[in-house]
Design a protein around this nucleic acid. Structure first.
Lengths: 140, 140
DNA sequence: CTACGAATTCGAGTCGACTCGAAGTCAACC
DNA sequence: GGTTGACTTCGAGTCGACTCGAATTCGTAG
């Protein structure tokens, strides 16, 4: 298999990850990359495909509410190399559990909202919506 | 049915909704109550059961990411009374749709995280975790 | 009568994650 | 050789939703 040593500008990486160039610089500053980001002769960042892959993971971690310090913690473990796999695994599993709880809570809240929507639908359909101007158990 | 005119102190409401007393005052200030909150002779807030119910809904709306201005918008419609039901309905349905998208996205991200966890589990089990110190497609 | 705890108001502070802007550099194209 | 446009650094600003603290006032229990 061919080793792709192709490098990507910050603009390209921005387009491919959905993160702004500003944010990419910020992430570098926050220590979210395992290796120092390489530069060209003019000092411009040159990203690798591998870094783009990692950024895609970062996006998922962020979307699920992992904080930048927590991501950095993971990166630090990776940086230390072999021997930290157990801890990395625990970290990821912990986050996975958190996300599951998030999903459950969101769905529970969604249920409440759906119920309210259903109430409106019913009353609007029956033309009894006038009774809906206040909240409470009697408005169900 | 008996009309319950029992009133609740801010501390009680705090306990029942999970919102701090500070937050309850803040919400009042932000216009999240349909009616002005009543006060006792000493100027202390007296909440009703109905308001507690509404606050529980608010908690769900907040948990699902509805902004305070958006909640206020809904409250304003309720305050205007009958005639605004369609708009309230649309508002709630719009939010419901947003929450569904949130759930979907969260689950998608969860899938990515689960995959990563599974990779670690496999490699740790097989004792091949040494190859896991870098990110990328080849580390799957 | 005094002490206490639970309220009150108001304004300021915090937090995380960006987001922006200014001033400058550099390579490439016309 | 000048303009363009993407990049650089750095520090400051923004945003939403609280969160806190100080100073004060009440009503009740001892």
């Amino acid at each position: 298999m061919a080793v792709t040593e192709e490098t990507l500008s910050i603009g390209t990486v921005s387009a491919r990850t959905g993160l702004s160039a500003h944010t990419l610089r910020f992430y570098e500053q926050e220590g979210l990359f395992v290796d120092p980001v390489r530069r060209d002769s003019a000092g411009r960042r040159m990203f690798t495909h591998r870094e783009v892959e990692w950024l895609r993971v970062c996006v998922r971690l962020r979307e699920t509410g992992m904080s930048l310090p927590d991501i950095r913690r993971y990166v630090e473990l990776v940086r230390q190399g072999p021997g930290t796999e157990q801890e990395r695994f625990a970290l990821l599993r912990g986050h996975e559990a958190k996300v599951r709880r998030q999903v459950a809570q969101l769905q529970e809240s969604l249920g409440v909202i759906e119920a309210k929507v259903a109430t409106y639908a019913r009353h609007l359909e029956q033309g009894t919506a006038d009774g809906l101007w206040r909240e409470g158990p009697e408005c169900d």
